[in-house]
């Protein structure tokens, strides 16, 4: 019997180690889970991009399920992500823009040329508000429920797959079930899923 244990114990230890390392291989360390998930959006007030429009504050986030997308005209991945945002806007998803450390005229040109998917835009010239949102690279996208709580975060440009498998399901579940929804079950490939 002890001989069998002497065989099983190292085998089990090896398996645990192998599984852990295997998981580590598929895990992108540049994606840091947000500390703000399931917390109310931080209080902020930002000026608009065009003078005649309203700016953006945390109060605007209440009342509907929305996306908050951090973007800049100088950010190449944002350019790659832009068509996805346009598609979402066509499907009546409310998207709020956080223009990160951009020249307002550049941002205006960019949106004029490519199209403007944003319902409202707040201009974060010095990036201070973005720090409150835990931003460390653009683009980043948050899903916010109708009570103004942050429920999901996507870091980096959204690919069509991220949209269909992760972002849309979260939006739809939150629209159906309201902000009371406790957890949203997602495929393991989604950034917000646990483990």
């Amino acid at each position: 019997m002890p001989k069998r244990i002497a065989f099983i114990v190292p085998a089990v230890l090896f398996l645990v180690l192998a599984v852990t390392l295997w998981w580590g291989l598929g895990h992108d360390p540049s994606i840091v889970p947000s500390a703000l998930i399931d917390k109310p959006a931080p209080a902020f007030k930002l000026p608009p991009l065009e003078e005649e429009n309203p700016g953006l504050s945390e109060q605007d986030l209440e009342g509907q399920v929305s996306l908050v997308n951090v973007f800049a005209s100088w950010c190449l991945p944002c350019r790659a992500e832009h068509p996805i945002l346009m598609r979402l806007a066509e499907d009546d998803v409310t998207i709020f823009g956080l223009n990160y450390k951009d020249k307002p005229e550049d941002a205006r040109n960019w949106l004029g040329r490519l199209g403007d998917p944003y319902s409202q835009i707040g201009v974060d010239l010095d990036g201070r508000v973005s720090i409150d949102w835990g931003i460390y690279g653009v683009p980043e996208t948050f899903v916010v429920d109708s009570s103004g709580r942050i429920r999901y975060k996507h870091i980096g440009p959204m690919a069509p797959r991220d949209l269909e498998e992760c972002i849309r399901p979260v939006i739809e579940r939150l629209k159906e079930q309201g902000p009371g929804l406790e957890t949203v079950e997602l495929p393991a490939s989604c950034q917000g899923s646990k483990g």
């Binding site: 840091v32 889970p33 500390a35 703000l36 931080p42 720090i131 409150d132 949102w133 835990g134 460390y136």
Partner: peptide, 8 residues
Amino acid sequence: VVARYGDF
């Protein structure tokens, strides 16, 4: 800072 960016 931790409140914004997490323990990492």
